[in-house]
Design a binder for these strands. Structure first.
Lengths: 333, 333
DNA sequence: CTGAAAGCGCTAACAA
DNA sequence: TTGTTAGCGCTTTCAG
């Protein structure tokens, strides 16, 4: 039993293969009569076009490459899966295929794809250069690449941090500290930067001790909050650069008899699913990770379809999610 | 500037396209001399074969489909990304492509793939039936499908739970309770089943109140542990069906003045990255999720290559990771 | 060990 | 609106 081809359909429907091809691709004009007959025959025969043949003949693959760099961190975070979800659903809707590669920075599915999405740049620098050189349409997620002629879609971490400061000020806080993320990452850096900037702009004091360096790991957060709590003038609020660390910060504070939010307000960043489920639901900054994936895909699609030429650089807004880990300073304690 | 083809390489190397094809596919016998010349030419020209053409001519795609059902839970867990990693790295090594689909249960990349991996069965029941009907090679992950003629690779949750009981017994515990996961999932069900079975086999008492039903969510864990702690005879140890819930259990216990592990031993399940970073590093059950992905891929590959016919059903062992959330009962408290 | 030539299944000029 | 036909770039018999 041979796999059936477009010729079988054509024969059974009493038309040429061209006509069948036309109804498959929903292209040009086909008489209502013929279209119906072909569609019926396709259904009856349960015919599916051979994608490889389509790609070869059409000179395009209808496939987007998704490159995930092979560094451990990316597999541990809430991040990657959300982004994949956004990309995946967008691709499904556009009837595009997604070719997944967990790359060590060398392999690349050139020829098999019309364009490529970099889930991150770390470890993919060379591949990225190559796509630029060879003019392969591409988009980089999660990194704002100022100077490179590449499309990119990232989160506005700076503005997110700024909003946190404004929110805490609105609640009456003046002594605000921060526990940073890993400053080797753009997210860590920008969240700190946005925080410091906002504090300066708002003319709030920022004693040196109020800046505590973490690395997104729980132990670093514990160390930081312990130091903060041990200060002569401990802060009344802490902006923690990730939800995981923020939750741990609350744990440590409570175990030391410091009540949250009554005596200490905490704000996180990420909006992990767990943040809302915690004993003290965490006030945090929501980033639309799946949106980032979706927009990355759609930006790339526009380029692939020739509807865009200039590099597009998107910075997605965040949203402050008010829950129960913060409190106005003027409420009785 | 046209894309270069196998003919260009053949011409420049002074051989036929057949010979070039032979060295590309590392097949049949080619004289050392010719092989060298062709390889050089390929490198010099930076030639890459057109995958679509290869697939069409060879009648196979060298591509495996990866189907992720589109239900929310799958994107929230630590689970999916680890499995993807395992599959992805294995695929890379075998020089296979991975076609990713976030499916709503209707779309299917038939024709574009040689075989398919189901990351889960929920929501994919019909697609699975279809692959069986059409004899498309497939493998199901994370579900042990007893009765279906399908390859599957899953975690041995029952044995994992049993090991926990044995471990706690070894530490001298006799009053052991459990907080279950969502019993609508196979993991939740099997972990409970393994626990109950072990307790019976070991002739340990299992008062009704020692079985507390959770759903993998934090609130359910809090409710459960509060009830447990309020009992006339609270347990000396609790087996919690997930790390997230176990960590929350510890939080609640400590906030009620119950010391962990001195007064209460806790064991989790999953070995989340966070489990080891917590204030009280969590003793838990490690499941080799990336291994599951890898083995799933390799099982499928064997079928695709015609090296296997019978359905293979694998149940992967777990490993108890001893950390600091448990303690012997005979130590002074 | 090598090459000529016949497809693989589809699309897209071009002609009708 | 429809059909004829020439490829798309590669693999693989088959004969040499």
């Amino acid at each position: 039993m041979k796999r059936l081809s477009i010729a079988d359909v054509a024969q059974r429907a009493g038309v040429s293969t061209t006509t069948v091809s036309r109804v498959i691709n929903d292209v040009s004009t086909v008489s209502e009569e013929n279209r119906r007959r072909v569609e019926e025959t396709i259904k009856k025969l349960n015919y599916h076009p051979n994608p490889s043949a389509q790609h070869l003949a059409a000179g395009k693959t209808n496939t987007i490459g998704l490159l995930i760099p092979r560094f451990e961190g990316i597999f541990h975070s809430y991040f990657a899966m959300q982004v994949i979800k956004g990309i995946g659903i967008a691709a499904e809707r556009s009837r595009f295929d997604l070719l997944l590669h967990i790359t060590d920075g060398t392999t690349f599915p050139a020829g098999a794809i019309d364009g490529v999405i970099f889930m991150d740049v770390y470890g993919c620098e060379e591949l990225l250069d190559r796509t630029i050189d060879e003019k392969i349409p591409s988009v980089v997620l999660n990194h704002y690449l100022e100077d490179l002629p590449v499309n990119c879609v990232a989160i506005d971490n700076r503005l997110g941090a700024q909003r946190v400061v404004d929110y805490l000020i609105k609640l009456g806080h003046k002594e605000i500290a921060t526990i940073t993320g890993d400053l080797k990452t753009q997210a860590g850096l920008d969240r700190l930067d946005g925080f410091v900037n906002a504090m300066k702009t708002r003319k709030l004091p920022l004693p040196e001790g109020y800046l505590r360096y973490g690395d997104f790991g729980l132990p670093s957060a514990r160390k930081a909050v312990e130091a903060l709590l041990a200060m002569k003038h401990p802060p009344t609020a802490i902006f923690v650069a990730s939800d995981d660390m923020a939750l741990e910060t609350i744990n440590v504070a409570m175990s030391k008899g410091v009540r949250v939010p009554e005596e200490l307000s905490i704000v996180g960043f990420d909006d992990n699913p767990i943040a809302s489920q915690a004993r003290i639901p965490l006030t945090t900054v929501r980033q639309a990770l799946d949106e980032m994936g979706r927009l990355g895909f759609e930006t790339l699609l526009a380029v692939v379809r020739g509807k865009k030429r200039m590099p597009t650089k998107l910075l997605l807004p965040t949203e402050l999610v008010e829950r129960q880990s913060c409190r106005q300073t003027w409420l009785e304690r």
